[in-house]
Design a protein around this nucleic acid. Structure first.
Length: 478
RNA sequence: GGCGCCGUGGCCAAGUGGUAAGGCAGAGGACUGCAAAUCCUCGAUCGUCGGUUCGACUCCGACCGGCGCCUCCA
């Protein structure tokens, strides 16, 4: 596959360092609040890459951390009158729930910063020994940016020129260079209040933000990882600092590919609480949107392009997803015709190949889905022409290709799972459908239409086919 | 001020130096008791102005508009 790497600013061929085994680290959520739809755009891309790599036959170690100690989590815990761990647990759980809702494959692990403090301390000790970090008068340990000559290579920022404009905080007076950043911070009153304090050779305190990712990535995945992911905002300073720390500590290249996901906008504007366009997954679900439609929307633009998230877009996605569900159902339910196929198997293979080629090209989902739609249309046309029948071999081939595509996209199965009808309801609906059939046979269309309308109101759609009336639950959005 | 991105049909969104995928919506048609589902047909010259080129939407420049990072942020 080819993958765009932010560090070299090139789209390059990707091969794992160790054949057959890919190591991926994605910066995960800071668990101080419910993750919003913008966070989940990024995480949806993580899931896409995860699924794609597995689909292409790789073993994947895919780690996504939880930042469970930082200013915001500490402030939040203090405001809630809780210990840090109690406070963050709520949002860890919420994240995992939302991830499941959106059909994410379980990642290999979700290391928490607070569970890796000893390794962080050791990491910092190593940096101090190497002369890459120093203990300042305020009790903080800072990374010395000037000790790393490649600093700024990723972002094109943070060079000496930029230092002139760097904001000068009170703590900056303790730094040797304004660009230096904290690896270890001495305990403050608020930290002690919520239990965010750990021992270290430099006294009680807590780790700086950038440190955790370097430590967890290298200790869990090795000194050099294949792919490092994050939102575009993390490029600087977070990822720049990760590189500086990690490479100074290990002497090895940190990440071979850097993938940054563009931010999404809501109604063409930056999502923010003040604009009132701030959405969480659970809010959208409460409004009645289909999880699969949310997922489809989040994946609807290439990950390096801006994604404009709108209600209209969600409605579009709802219709598109429903069409895919209908397609699979139609194919599954189609009676097998006798004789040889009509070439659908070959075309399914062709479109599946095109789908794969699109993803091979820097995860080009829009192009991949175009191949999917072409398959849908061609098969529907064929079914129309053949009275709804299709050769068994053709049917299995098309269903197989669809399943393969969905192994990466993860929407059809997700959509079907939210359209299940419980047993009791099923019997009730069946009874109504039969009553309507009798009314139709008696040409009592008023009664028939009334039953159909009633069922439609509860999301049950009826279709009168030559083989009888069929019904299905559909999602049409709020 | 520095670095960077974007502007494609009503909406969303790919793409390429040789005359623009796909989805949604809309219109007409087929099918249907009427529908639904499905299929068929119909729409853009790619922000503006210059330049390079046999030829640019695709390269270069300027401009207009929108946006991101530079401070916590997916």
């Amino acid at each position: 596959m080819k993958l765009h790497d932010s560090l070299t600013r090139r789209t390059r061929r990707f091969e794992p360092l160790r054949p057959g085994r890919v190591t991926v680290y994605g910066c995960g959520p800071t668990v101080y609040d419910f993750a919003h739809i913008g966070n989940f755009r990024t995480f949806a891309v993580y899931d896409l890459l995860h699924r794609y790599l597995r689909w292409r036959g790789h073993e994947v170690d895919f780690v996504v951390n939880f930042t469970d100690v930082d200013d915001k989590t500490i402030t939040g815990a203090a405001d809630a009158g809780l210990r840090l761990a109690e406070h963050t647990e709520t949002f860890v759980k919420a994240f995992l729930d939302d991830a499941k809702t959106l059909g994410f494959l379980p990642f290999s692990g979700h290391p928490r910063a607070t569970a890796h403090i000893p390794a962080m301390v050791a990491f910092v000790e190593g940096l101090v020994e190497r002369g890459s970090a120093y203990l300042a008068a305020d009790g903080s340990v800072y990374y010395a940016v000037t000790s790393f000559d490649r600093y700024g290579r990723l972002s094109g920022k943070g060079g000496e020129d930029g230092a002139g404009r760097a904001r000068i905080d009170a703590e900056d007076f303790e730094k040797r260079d304004p660009r230096d950043f904290a690896l270890w911070k001495p305990a403050q009153a608020a930290d002690r209040e919520v239990g965010a304090v750990w021992d270290s050779p430099w006294g009680p305190g807590r780790p700086g933000w950038h440190l955790e990712c370097s430590v967890m990535a290298t200790s869990l995945l090795g000194d050099t990882i294949d792919i490092h992911l994050g939102g575009e905002d993390l490029l600087f300073p977070h990822h720049e600092n990760e590189i500086a720390q990690s490479e100074a500590a290990t002497g090895e290249p940190f990440a071979r590919f850097w993938v940054h996901v563009k931010h999404l906008k809501v109604d063409a504007r930056k999502m923010s609480k003040s604009l009132g366009n701030f959405h969480t997954v659970r809010e959208l679900l409460d409004e009645g949107y289909d999880p699969a439609a949310i997922r489809w929307t989040l994946l609807s633009a290439h990950h390096r392009s801006e994604l404009n998230f709108t209600r209209d877009g969600l409605d579009d996605a709802t219709a598109a997803v429903q069409r895919l569900v209908d397609f699979r159902r139609r194919l599954r339910d189609s009676p097998a015709s006798r004789g040889d196929g009509r070439g659908l198997a070959a075309r399914a293979a062709e479109h599946l190949a095109a789908f794969g080629r699109a993803l091979d090209d820097d995860l080009n989902v829009p192009r991949a889905t175009a191949a999917l739609w072409t398959l849908v249309k061609e098969v529907n046309t064929e079914l129309d022409g053949a009275g709804g029948r299709v050769a068994r071999t053709d049917r299995e081939a098309v269903l197989g290709a669809l399943a393969e595509m969905d192994a990466v996209l993860g929407v059809v199965g997700l959509a079907e799972s939210s359209r299940k009808v419980a047993g009791a309801d099923e019997e009730r609906v069946q009874t109504l459908v039969e009553a309507r059939e009798q009314a139709r046979a008696a040409r009592d269309f008023a009664t028939a239409d009334r039953i159909r309308d009633e069922l439609a109101a509860e999301g049950i759609r009826l279709e009168d086919t030559p083989g009888g009336t069929r019904w299905t639950r559909v999602r049409t959005g709020p």
